[in-house]
Write a protein that binds this DNA or RNA. Structure first.
Length: 467
DNA sequence: GCATGATCATGC
DNA sequence: GCATGATCATGC
């Protein structure tokens, strides 16, 4: 059903702006807040009570004549005061069988989501959702450069369906437009056209990282710096542009790279490699968090230093583990799973020319980059096994032992070790012997963190280098 | 040489 | 003071 009372964008926006400052309780005229617990509930209140049209699951935009789709979505205030989108913005469900027959201009995504009327409300912890307040209503159209990236994202998603891999689609596969799973549980399965394997239902979505940049831009006027030129994006993917920018430096030592880029050679500085990266992207001095494409696509950089035998000496560490959180979450909603699903890693790969025992002053040479996200099957198998095993031990209690080694007391535990499954393990990471944490069952242990095995990282790198 | 635990250095 | 990235040290 279309709404003819809004004949122009201006009329619609005049109305939409009237919701600013109002709570959902004030706007709800149909008692949805009290009767229903469905997650789409807040959006439905706006549709029904505020704009006065019936909730539908139409393939056309909500305001059809204006080609505008309504989206009601939350943002939050972080501990440091920065704003973030609370969630990814879930758009229309992907019909695997049909989407492969379209080109981008005729795709279900583009037909429905060309223009978005975004109504941002502020999410607060432990507050009744009836009291959430609409902060800002705005009409959003995709900037040209974003649209180029989104087109390629859409094409990648469709290509994967055409390869019979709809069930392997992961949000990290793409940059701004994702294919996120959407369904109550594993029983929300759909058929796909080029494989007999049923695939979880998925929807097109704008990544949470993409939405966060919108929130910061429109509520705080925060601007980012982009490295890709509009013209380049017509013909190349973001990945291709990145590889192109880095390739002139392959084979140089880190010192030669710094010289060529006019950067100070200071390998001890934590910002040395980040400075090289922004310089070589043509935006010298920009902090990596302020790079538009990295922020929107949630691209996180990691330096890798390979030994002469092509394996990094050390495993790759991540954040400290909050075990209280681990035991409370289900795997499906766990922060660990979410992290690997939503993060793309930019591996900046160097290699030592000699072993340290041969020459302590050995040099480091730039070998290339790899833009990588963990395959969904690895996340849901090996990473999950580590998570499961840790959670099992947290329930039954860890074996924590103390042994004397010379003057020192060494603490050890039975959390999954590097030999556990070839992908990941858990290991201590404290700043000294007193850097402890308390487990949910009261046990006290040195702070632990999640690691990707050095050999697994080596496999990932070697695969990418041989492509 | 590898596995495992310990701890350093930097930056906010 | 703490998080994060990086690396060290010991024992098998």
């Amino acid at each position: 059903m279309s709404i003819l009372i809004y004949k122009t964008e201006n009329e619609l926006m005049e109305k939409a702006i009237q919701a600013e400052g109002k709570s959902f309780k004030e706007l709800d005229r149909k008692g949805r807040l009290t009767n229903q617990k469905s997650k789409g509930g807040l959006g439905q209140i706006i549709e029904e009570s505020f704009f006065g049209y019936k909730v539908n699951s139409n393939a056309k935009p909500d305001f059809e004549e204006l080609e505008i789709e309504l989206k009601v979505t939350p943002f939050k205030v972080n501990k440091n005061g920065q704003l973030s989108s609370k969630e990814r913005l879930v758009l229309n469900i992907i019909n695997y069988v049909e989407e492969v027959n379209f080109d981008f201009d005729n795709s279900s995504f583009w037909k429905k989501n060309k223009k978005l009327l975004l109504m941002l409300y502020k999410w607060l912890p432990k507050i009744d959702r009836a009291d959430y307040i609409i902060y800002k209503s705005m009409l959003f159209t995709f900037p040209d450069s974003d649209l180029e990236i989104i087109k390629k994202d859409w094409e990648l998603i469709v290509t994967k369906i055409r390869q019979g891999k709809a069930h392997e689609l992961s949000e990290g596969d793409t940059n701004y437009l994702g294919a996120c799973t959407k369904g109550a549980n594993k029983s929300s399965l759909r058929t796909q056209p080029y494989s007999d394997t049923p695939a979880m239902q998925r929807a097109f979505s704008l990544k949470q990282s993409y939405m966060t940049t919108l929130v910061r831009k429109f509520l705080k006027n925060e601007e980012l710096v982009s490295f890709a030129k509009n013209e380049e994006l017509h013909s190349k993917t973001l990945e291709e542009i990145l590889y192109e920018r880095f390739s002139p430096y392959i084979g140089l030592s880190d010192e030669e790279m710094a010289n060529k880029l006019g950067e100070r050679y200071n390998k001890k500085s934590k910002s040395f490699i980040p400075s090289l990266i922004s310089s070589l992207l043509g935006i010298k001095g920009t902090r990596l968090e302020k790079i538009e494409e990295f922020a929107k696509a949630n691209i996180q950089f990691k330096t890798i230093r390979l030994e002469p035998n092509d394996v990094p000496k050390e495993s790759m560490s991540f954040e400290n583990i909050d075990f209280h959180q681990w035991v409370e979450e289900s795997w499906e909603e766990s922060e660990l799973r979410e992290k690997f699903i939503t993060t793309k890693f930019l591996f900046v790969i160097f290699q030592y020319n000699e072993n340290k025992s041969q020459n302590p002053e050995r040099k480091l040479y730039f070998k290339g980059i790899n833009l990588w996200n963990m395959p969904l099957s690895t996340i849901d198998n090996e990473v999950r096994e580590v998570w499961n095993e840790a959670n099992r031990l947290l329930t039954v209690g860890l074996n924590i032992e103390y042994k004397k080694r010379g003057e020192k007391i060494i603490e050890s535990n039975n959390l999954p070790k590097v030999g556990f499954n070839g992908v990941a393990h858990i290991r201590p990471k404290g700043k000294d012997g007193n850097d402890k944490t308390t487990l949910p069952n009261g046990q006290v242990i040195t702070k632990q963190c999640f690691w990707l095995n050095n050999k697994y990282v080596a496999e990932v790198i070697n695969e990418s280098m041989n492509q």
